[in-house]
Structures are given as structure tokens and as C-alpha cells.
Amino acid sequence: MWNKRESEAASYSPVPSSPGSPVSGGGTERASIGASVAIVGNVTGAEDLTVLGRLEGKIDVPQHNVTIGRTARVQADIHAKSVSVEGEVRGNLFAGEQILIRKTATMLGNLTAPRVGLEDGCSFKGSVDMEMRAENQRATAPQAQRPQETPAKPPAPSLPTPVKLETAPARP
């Protein structure tokens, strides 16, 4: 799909862009794949990663954060602690903590994380799987937008009484 005449590598460990520089999140290093860099292969590492260029393959940094910058075009599955997408990604994202799809993003693939945020204006096709159940989310999800917390309204008389989630019967 993309021009594969550019640099290719079976596996790539990105070099930290500014070794030792403090990064938000507690002094960990952050590696960067520049906007002019194209990689075909797998990327693994033990530090946060920012992708600004092209990447086709797989990103596997399960303990760290991945940022797909606005100029990036990535065709890869990504496994990370958290993923933020501002550019274009075709692939499935798996995050232990959260995934954020920014408004500038084009995201074609499935998202799996306990928390997923979609900014208005993003382009997205895929499924969202947040494995936490609603009961657990009450402790962690943002306060806004939860229907349980909207002001009570008189129910329409013709409609059935809503069944509380905790007591919902199993699907036949």
C-alpha cells in the first residue's frame, strides 16, 4: 500500500530522541520515529514511543505509552500501556490502560482497552471493546455523560420500566 522502497527493517528499536530528558509521566525516556522515517517491521522497546513517520508492521511496548503523531501513517497492530492517535492508523490497538483517538485521527481498526476516548471530529471505523463492566466504570469513568446521573425525568407511560443493569437477566 505504501511505498516500500524506503528503509525497511525486520525489527527496529528506536533511539531515544532526547536521552534522559524529563517527560510527563515520571522521568521515563521517550523515543521518536521522525516524520521522514519509514519502517517495515516490528518495533519493540522499553520506553515511551512517538511515531511521526510511516510504519508498517507491529508495535509492541506493553509497559509504555505510544503516541501516533499527526503526520504519522501507521499500518500496524499496537500493544501498549496507553495509545494516543492523532494521525492515521490501520490496525488494531490493545492498551492496558487507555486509548485516545484525537480529532485529527483517522483510525481504521478495533480498539481494546479499559478506557477509550473518541474526540469529536475523528474518523473511525471499527469496534470498541472496553472490558470493564458498568459497575466498575462508576469508580473510574469521567463523571459527565453517564445517563444514570442525568436529572430524573418522568418515564413515558407506554415504555417499559428500565431494568437495572445489575439485575438484568441473562440473554436467552
Partner: peptide
């Protein structure tokens, strides 16, 4: 999500 839905978009 508050309804425990699996969502595809």
C-alpha cells in the same frame, strides 16, 4: 459503555 454495550462504529 454505561450500558455495557460492545460498540462498533
Amino acid at each position: 459503555r454505561a450500558l455495557s454495550c460492545r460498540v462498533s462504529i
